[in-house]
């Protein structure tokens, strides 16, 4: 049989079905793309997160080092200030000791130790020493021993040994 119209190829899918399939494909592609986009973004976030964590560890190490340096400086400052205060105390102790010597008594030598003081001097009479010099010494030291030697002119040379009770105590520092 002969036909005047050419035979139409039978389509596997109809037009509307094709449209749906394309629509499905586009949708799936967009969904998957969106999910992939989120995963890539999450990957970069976690990568940056790791970098930040690494930097935090480095910074914390640096902070520990700086804190140690700060403590060292504070320690040096404290030691310096402590030494200067102690120097000042020693100066004041000597000053006070020399101010303690009454006019009639002459001092020849004194030896200041951590827990003792030895004074060598000359006094016109024993009473002058006992009245003017002994009381302040007794108020500072726990033990005071004085030895007198009479000189040819009648005055007395004396040696006064003053001690503190405890080994760690000091009257001057």
């Amino acid at each position: 049989m002969y036909s005047f119209t050419k035979p139409k190829k039978k389509q596997f899918f109809k037009e509307d079905t094709k449209l749906w399939l394309v629509f499905y494909a586009i949708s799936v592609f967009l969904y998957v793309s969106f999910a992939l986009f989120l995963l890539v973004k999450a990957y970069f976030y976690s990568k940056n997160n790791q970098i930040y964590n690494q930097n935090i560890i480095t910074l914390n190490t640096k902070i520990s080092s700086l804190t140690l340096q700060k403590e060292n400086i504070k320690l040096q400052k404290t030691i310096y200030e402590d030494i200067m205060v102690k120097n000042s105390l020693i100066k004041d102790s000597i000053k006070n000791l020399l101010d303690l010597i009454p006019d009639p008594i002459t001092l020849n030598k004194f030896l200041l130790k951590k827990d003792s003081l030895i004074i060598y001097g000359i006094t016109p009479t024993k009473d002058v020493y006992n009245l003017l010099m002994l009381p302040p010494l007794e108020s500072i030291f726990t033990k005071t021993d004085t030895t007198f030697y009479q000189m040819p002119n009648g005055w007395y040379k004396f040696k006064s040994i003053n001690k503190l009770k405890g080994n760690n105590e000091t009257a001057f520092n």
Binding site: I83, K86, N87, N108, K113
Partner: peptide, 13 residues
């Protein structure tokens, strides 16, 4: 320098 003056201190005329 950091210096501390310490005992014994001996004064003799």
């Amino acid at each position: 320098n950091i210096i501390r003056v310490y005992f014994p201190i001996d004064f003799e005329k």
